[in-house]
Design a binder for these strands. Structure first.
Lengths: 133, 133
DNA sequence: GTACTAAAATAGGCACGCCTAACTCAGCAG
DNA sequence: CTGCTGAGTTAGGCGTGCCTATTTTAGTAC
């Protein structure tokens, strides 16, 4: 009754993405680091981790660090992929400054459906190696 | 302590936009029509109208219809302007089908900052009357 | 091993935004 | 004028996501 039908909220996707980045730079994600990165309190992180652990997306034991499960990493990578695609579109196509492109991408990545995103990507690609057309 | 600092949520912006459209086609917005348009229950509309009335954005008396105040209309028009700009960008630049462009615009209109939106508009304009560059 | 410290967890609360169920009112039929 | 009907409202509740204050724990210093 909840194998995959349970959709992830934008908030939870942000947590996964943050954990992915922290794992990259230190092999492990600590609660306080996640809190700092997402600008939320530690209890908020604890609550989110409990939720994500319940979905089998992160491994997390009391007073320990958090790590993505295989499934969690898969989703986190997907979110990151969307993030990068959007950010690149904003900078390359629309010439939006890096900082603003970054923060805007953070919001759009939770809103754009895959098929819509594909149009963004295709357009950016066509500009890159087609120069126009 | 709340002359303009109180930001409107995406949800409240949707209500304003819906009322604007309903006023256009029938001079007046009824609770049940708003509910139908936004796919929410009537009590949800009543609650939102109470909120918006408290902010001075709509006029609404018990068991009566709702109308935008001057300030409310100003905001609704602004939201609609963003909506149209985004929708046009999606269809004209990215060749996204009308229906999907419409629903995507509904989401993006609450996320894109004015200065970011300006880039979208400028790009679409340059394509229109510049054909490329 | 005991004491301290800092990180993490629990407890409890608040704001949104939505819902269903139940009640109220306005307007019309008769 | 009585009663019906349906639009609108109130009452109450739920899930999410966040917060502060408090407690628990792990790890380190000594």
């Amino acid at each position: 009754m909840e194998p995959q039908s349970e959709m992830l909220s934008a908030s939870l996707e942000d947590y996964l993405e943050a954990i992915l980045l922290l794992e990259r730079e230190s092999r492990v994600a600590r609660v306080s680091e996640i809190a700092d990165q997402l600008h939320v309190s530690r209890p908020s992180v604890t609550g989110a981790l409990k939720n994500l652990a319940g979905r089998g997306l992160v491994a997390h034991e009391r007073y320990g660090h958090a790590t993505l499960t295989e499934e969690g990493e898969r989703i986190a990578l997907e979110v990151e992929r969307r993030h990068v695609a959007i950010r690149d579109f904003l900078t390359e196509v629309l010439s939006i400054p890096a900082v603003q492109a970054e923060t805007t991408a953070c919001k759009l990545e939770h809103v754009l459906e895959p098929d819509i995103l594909a149009h963004f990507v295709a357009y950016a690609d066509s500009l890159r190696d087609g120069r126009q057309a």
